[in-house]
C-alpha cells in the first residue's frame, strides 16, 4: 500500500468522525447561556454547579431545572457537573477544597447533614467549610409495602412490625440514602429494631418490593407515586406535615398517628467558606428568581414536590435548617449504631 492512500484513508476516517461529532454538536448543545443583568465583576466566567450524585437522579434533575433560570438571572453559563461517590461526600469534598470565588457551587441534599455522623475522616465539616446559599426544595417521602402485606394502616404496621420484629424486612437504597435515613427514623419512632435489606439504588429495591421479595420501605414520592397509584404497592403515609397533591388520599404520618416520623429530602446550594458576601447574595437572589419561575414550579410539581417559600431560599434559613438537621441525624445515626466508614 502506498503511503498516500494510507493517509487518505485516515483522513476519510477522521472526516467520518467529524460528521458524527457535528451531529452530536447539533443535538448536544447542553449549556445554558443567559443574557440577563451582567456587569459588577461577578460573574465573568462559567459557573459550575457540582451535583455529587449520578446524572438523571432526583437531585440532578432538580439542579438542572434551576440551572437555566439562574443562568439567565446571573448572565453567565451555568454548567452542571456530576461528581459521584461515597454518598455524595466525594463531590462535596471537592467543592469544599475549591477556590471560594463563587464559580464552583455545590448542590447537596439531606446527606450533607448526615455525612459527619456516617463517615469518619470526612475531610470537611458542613458548617465550617461551606457557606449556605439557600434551600431549594423539600421532597416528601412515603411509607410503602408489598401489596399483600397484612397491616392496613400505619398504626397496624407499627403494631405488626413490633410483634414480628424478627421476620419483617425493611428495604433501603443503600447506606446514607434517603430511604435508609427514613427507615432509621421509622424504627426510632416505632421503637423497634428491624432487619434492613440494603440495595444499590431505589430501582432494584422497588423492584423487589413490587415482586414481594421484601416487606416494606420508605422512599421519595418521586419514586413511589407511580407504583402507589397503580396499586402495585400498598402506601401507609406521607412523611411531611402536609399531604401531597399527587396522592390526596394518603394521610400524613401525624394524621396516621406517628407524628415523630417527619422527614423530607431537602436540597440546598453551597459555596466554599470564604466566598465574598456580595457573590453569595447574587447567587441567593438568582436562586430566588429561579424558584419563582413558573416553569420550575410546574416541573417540580410533576416531580411531586415544590420550591421552598422565598424566605427559605436565603443563606440564613438554610444555615438554620442545616444546624438543626445535623443535630437530629447525629443522634438518630449514633443510636442506630450505623457507620459508613
Amino acid at each position: 500500500m502506498r503511503p498516500t492512500s494510507r493517509y487518505r484513508a485516515a483522513a476519510r476516517m477522521i472526516a467520518a468522525i467529524g460528521v458524527v461529532s457535528l451531529a452530536a454538536a447539533c443535538s448536544g448543545n447542553g449549556g445554558t447561556t443567559g443574557g440577563g443583568d451582567a456587569g459588577g465583576g461577578y460573574p465573568d466566567q462559567n459557573i459550575t454547579i457540582v451535583v455529587p450524585f449520578s446524572a438523571g437522579g432526583p437531585t440532578d434533575t432538580v439542579t438542572r431545572l434551576i440551572a437555566e433560570p439562574m443562568a439567565a438571572k446571573l448572565g453567565a453559563q451555568v454548567v452542571v457537573q456530576n461528581v459521584e461517590g461515597a454518598g455524595g461526600t466525594v463531590g462535596a469534598g471537592e467543592v469544599a477544597r475549591a477556590e471560594p470565588d463563587g464559580y464552583t457551587v455545590l448542590m447537596h441534599h439531606i446527606g450533607m447533614s448526615t455525612a459527619p455522623a456516617l463517615y469518619q475522616d470526612l475531610g470537611f465539616a458542613p458548617l465550617e467549610n461551606f457557606q449556605t446559599i439557600g434551600l431549594v426544595t423539600e421532597v416528601p417521602m412515603t411509607i410503602v409495602a408489598r401489596k399483600d402485606f397484612a397491616p392496613a394502616t400505619l398504626q397496624d404496621l407499627v403494631a405488626h412490625v413490633k410483634a414480628n420484629a424478627d421476620t419483617v424486612t425493611l428495604a433501603n437504597a443503600g447506606i446514607g440514602a434517603a430511604s435508609h435515613l427514613c427507615g432509621l427514623l421509622f424504627q426510632t419512632a416505632a421503637g423497634v429494631k428491624l432487619q434492613e435489606v440494603p440495595y444499590e439504588g431505589t430501582g432494584p429495591a422497588l423492584t423487589d418490593l413490587v415482586g414481594g421479595q421484601v416487606d416494606f420501605m420508605c422512599d421519595q414520592t418521586t419514586n413511589t407515586s407511580g407504583q402507589i397509584s397503580a396499586g402495585e404497592v400498598k402506601a401507609y403515609a406521607v412523611t411531611t406535615p402536609e399531604r401531597v397533591k399527587s396522592l390526596p388520599d394518603l394521610p400524613t404520618t401525624a394524621e396516621a398517628g406517628l407524628p415523630q416520623l417527619e422527614v423530607s429530602v431537602w436540597h440546598g446550594l453551597y459555596v466554599p467558606t470564604g466566598t465574598p458576601q456580595d457573590v453569595v447574595q447574587k447567587l441567593s437572589e438568582a436562586l430566588k428568581v429561579a424558584l419563582a419561575d413558573q416553569k420550575v414550579i410546574d416541573q417540580m410539581a410533576k416531580l411531586g414536590t415544590a420550591p421552598v417559600p422565598a424566605e427559605d431560599a436565603t443563606p440564613q434559613a438554610h444555615r438554620t435548617k442545616l444546624e438543626e438537621q445535623l443535630g437530629t441525624w447525629a443522634k438518630v445515626i449514633a443510636d442506630a449504631g450505623v457507620k459508613a466508614s
Binding site: 468522525i17 467529524g18 461529532s21 452530536a24 454538536a25 448536544g28 454548567v79
Partner: peptide
C-alpha cells in the same frame, strides 16, 4: 497535533465534555 485537534473536536465540541480547554 492531529490527535489533539481531533479529540478536542470529538469530545469537547461534539460530545460537550465538561473539561476546560485551558486549565487554571
Amino acid at each position: 497535533a492531529g490527535l489533539t485537534v481531533a479529540s478536542t473536536l470529538i469530545f469537547v465540541v461534539g460530545l460537550q465534555l465538561r473539561i476546560p480547554l485551558w486549565g487554571p
